[in-house]
Design a protein around this nucleic acid. Sequence first.
DNA 1: CCCAAGACCTGGCGGC
DNA 2: TGCCGCCAGGTCTTGG
Length: 271
Amino acid sequence: MPELPEVETTRRGLLPLLVGRKVQDMTIRQRNLRWPISRSLPAAIRGQSVQSLDRRAKYLLMRFSHGSVLLHLGMSGSLRILPQTEAPKKHDHVDFVLADKQCLRLHDPRRFGAILWTTRDPQSHPLLKDLGPEPLDEEFDGDYLFRRSRGRKVAIKNFLMNSQVVVGVGNIYANEALFQAGIRPTHAAGRLSKLRLHSLATKVKNVLQHALEVGGTTLRDYRSPNGHPGYFRLELAVYGRAGEPCKVCRKPLIEKRIGQRSSVYCRTCQS
DNA sequence: CCCAAGACCTGGCGGC
DNA sequence: TGCCGCCAGGTCTTGG
């Protein structure tokens, strides 16, 4: 699934096609996503205009005058604007029908995604209220990581992927940022120096920012709303490269499961 | 509170 | 070709 660069690329692609437009109807072919889609949602947004499309963590927030749709893409979700006449394919679970016979269509084979409706401030929604800072915001820096990590024994990779610490960093970018910072993913978070955490925060920002600039990472499913893949895959230094030579020292990269997720690193370059 | 593991779901791949 | 086990971009929930 989409990590932050893919979700943000999706948001930017949808923005000009969605904001200011009216939702004429909503077609639900499969309501059982991560949580069932509320039966009252279609009636709630029918005839209403999309006021803005924002993002918090990996959630897209479609705002209407009287509430917001929270959209999450899970591991395999994607959104596209298509002609309403185009026949839905397998796993095309939901259409937001727009004017001009177009629709916003959710495709999500694994159904880990979600579509939720809230009439309150989305930031106070239970799923959003305890989230950590956005990684590209100023408040996310080495001092922040240092403060939050003291006393924590968890592996730095798991710490980085904890959305209460910082949002948007998934398995790909956690591996990449740790490689760029020269830190082993297994290192106890609470034992890293402030200096090293400064480097890590900087690398997290750089990796995400750069991935965003090239449209994210496409492994198989992911497509931006205009159908293009992301090109960061070509630049991955460690993710998906276990056994291949380190791009810096040429020694084979190691793969190890940490917190049930595959982690790839260089024994020489990362300590 | 902290941490690890389980759960949710489908599809693709390698091995036999 | 078929079946089996394992793996996959997430994150909420449970149990120790």
